[in-house]
Amino acid sequence: MNWYVFLEGVISVLLIAGGAFAFIGSLGMAHLRDFYMRLHGPTKATTLGIGCILIASMLYFGVTAGQPVVQEMLITLFLFITAPVSAHLLAKTGLHLKLKHVEKTRGKPVELYREEVGEKPVPHPDRGHD
């Protein structure tokens, strides 16, 4: 079998898988019932989908240029690093605003420390605070 036909198949499968994962993530975000559930879809499925699409693009330009291309790896790495950080901040914001959650959501929103929501200054023991 021709090598290029095989690579084209791999790229096509990666593209369709990426689109499907991104769609499933957005479907979860539009369909689920409370904010803590909705946070699951985009942070995991959509990140995986965009990783698939960027790897497909990297493969395509690597094959057509005849040498490995690593620029798309930059976006992939950046997104894979920043997605958990923004998800953590969004979850913390939802807990801080005390959003409603359905009964089936397991676990209760934990209480944040008063220092974390700005009601009390962060204590500095060496400056005389307790």
């Binding site: 990426g18 689109g19 991104a22 993530g25 957005s26 975000m29 879809g41 985009p42 959509t46 990140t47 989908g49 965009i50 699409i53 976006i75 997104l79 997605a83």
Partner: peptide, 8 residues
């Protein structure tokens, strides 16, 4: 999510 999808 929208900006991630627009990157794609």
């Amino acid at each position: 999510t929208m900006y991630v999808n627009s990157i794609a």
